[in-house]
Amino acid sequence: MSSPPRIWLSTKSPKKGEVVTVRTIVQHVMETAFRKTEDGKPVPQKIVNRFECKLNGKPVIVWTLGTGVSANPYLEFRFKAEEAGELKMVWTDDDKSVIEAVEKITLA
């Protein structure tokens, strides 16, 4: 949770209807709860359990993560740029804290 998510877009000013590729990576330990500390206590689970991306509030993708997703969850996805606006991405942690990122999309 220490550094902001890194986001790459194939273009920030696509043509209307163009498919845009987004790559995201967020720094997170994704602790599975399968490990134990030195004194035998289980390390509590701490994962990002949900990622959601919306363009102007319209759903693009919802990702429900389990412990089988690698640490520092990486996701590349695509969306159709039907309108200009704000591409909002939200990662939700087990402890309900969120990481947010917003990218401005303008139509060419």
């Binding site: 990702w63 429900t64 993560l65 089988g68 997703v69 590349e76 159709k80």
Partner: peptide
Amino acid sequence: KVCSFKFEPGLGVPYLTTRIR
């Protein structure tokens, strides 16, 4: 269950890449 995804018509494109354990 590793993970799951939900899409909706309109803006959604069912194409993705991630990394799993």
